[in-house]
């Protein structure tokens, strides 16, 4: 066992949909709400735009956790994008757990444009669970 790196901070990639969750993150910022700076936000048009590839690539390239957030069911800007995404993500998450990757590393949630507080809470929760898991090792590429 090597020494425990006390300076280690989890790196979390968050895919946020343009219309709800990204605006929710914006609201959290405007409202001066405090949440950990471990999250790197990538804005996408819709949660339906997110391919399982995005999530796997993140894990391969050194993300310790991935968060995907979109509009609440029924609120999708494109009407049904988040419904289709939900089926896709259910399968991906289940498959990752099946092969033995910690299920808390990949998280899905809905955050609306008015839920700045919820966004901050989600980031807190995800950061803490990923911190407890420690650095991701299983899918990380050794040579790039």
């Amino acid at each position: 066992m090597g020494k425990i790196d006390t300076n280690w901070e989890p790196r979390i990639i968050a895919f946020l949909c343009n219309w709800c969750s990204y605006a929710g993150a914006d609201l959290a910022g405007v409202g001066r709400m405090q949440y950990p700076a471990n999250v790197r936000v990538i804005r996408v048009p819709c949660s339906g735009r997110i391919s399982p590839f995005f999530i796997l690539s993140s894990l391969q390239n050194g993300a310790d956790g991935v968060l995907v957030s979109g509009c609440h069911p029924g609120d999708c800007h494109y009407l049904t994008g988040n419904y289709s995404a939900r089926r896709k993500f259910a399968l991906l998450k289940s498959q990752l757990e099946h092969i033995g990757i910690e299920k808390e590393r990949v998280q899905f949630t809905w955050v609306s444009a008015s839920e700045g507080g919820k966004f901050a809470e989600v980031i807190n929760r995800v950061t803490e669970t990923v911190r407890a898991l420690g650095p991701a090792k299983k899918l990380v590429k050794k040579c790039l």
Binding site: R86, S94, E121, V122, V126
Partner: peptide, 8 residues
Amino acid sequence: SEEFMLDV
């Protein structure tokens, strides 16, 4: 089912 989703 939304069982797999983060419960906040």
